[in-house]
Amino acid sequence: MAVVEVRGLTKRFDGTGAAAVDGIDIASRDGEFLVLLGPSGCGKTTLLRMIGGLEPPTAGDILIGGRVVTDLPPRARQIAMVFQSYALYPHMSVKDNIAFPLKAANMPKAAQQERIAWAAGILGIDHLLGRKPRQLSGGQRQRVALARALVREPNVFLLDEPLSNLDAQRRASARDELQQFQRRVATTTIYVTHDQVEAMGMGDRIAVMEQGHIRQLGPPQEIYDEPADTFVATFVGSPPMNLVPDPAAGDLLGFRPEHFQPAAADGVNGAARFPFHVHRMEYLGAERLLYGEVGEAKVIARFPVTVPIPVEPGATAEFAVPLRHLKRFDAKTGLRRPARSVS
């Protein structure tokens, strides 16, 4: 169990002016499932690799369990890492893969056996111990990688997009397994992903990153409902939050597609009204999406399949958003403005 903290952490790669990670301060809580979420190139993996000791930071400090580990090699940090490729040792059996961290720590043979059996039991891979990695499916490889990470009982798990090599169906069940596993071992986990579904579904807290900075840190619901800026608003949520200019104040008004409904359905008071010109409808089974424009801005409205749609593509209708769901952003900085009434 340990808290991971980074202070003013910066990474500049040679030859590039911009920092991959630019002075980040963040601290996990003990036993927390912390997700680093962002588009590719935002610095999330670099941040994780620096915490793991695989990448030396340009500036700043890393603390694990209150101890500064910035200059320690990975093997001195009591961490375990699961890679996107799983990075199993191809020439070793599953059992030897799991035993590797124990052998490296000079654990006696008998104790090793015990720990291997324990880790294999937790992940349900007892029957695979004699196989080579190439004889395993993607999901099995992922579990072996987790067992190898678990077996040493590290202070921290670092997971780098461990689900991205699984097919879509397997990914949903792997999300569930991974979260249950983390709850059971209650070890601080830092999880890197670009997939907001994984982030929303698994994280205790999410740090949304962009261009080497953390844009917002908070529980999934807060990230979704109260985005700190237009980047978070449009990166999290699918389809993203709609942004419409408010000519009166020079701000941007943000609202989620599911809150953008025909005006008649809501009271005239307590809602902001927009003329919505609909271009086309997309049928997605459980829901339908209406694509169109409000003024110049592209806007999407989302309807559950149970709600009738009162407007045809090509027509314009009056739509409204309840005021409590209307977020106001500074048009220049993109930052959220404190709530105030909308005229």
Binding site: G52, L54, P74, R75, Y89, F100, R152
Partner: peptide, 14 residues
């Protein structure tokens, strides 16, 4: 693969 070397590093092998 770099990942394999990284994994060995993290797993504690000198």
């Amino acid at each position: 693969p770099q990942d394999v070397k990284d994994a060995a590093n993290v797993d504690g092998a000198g």
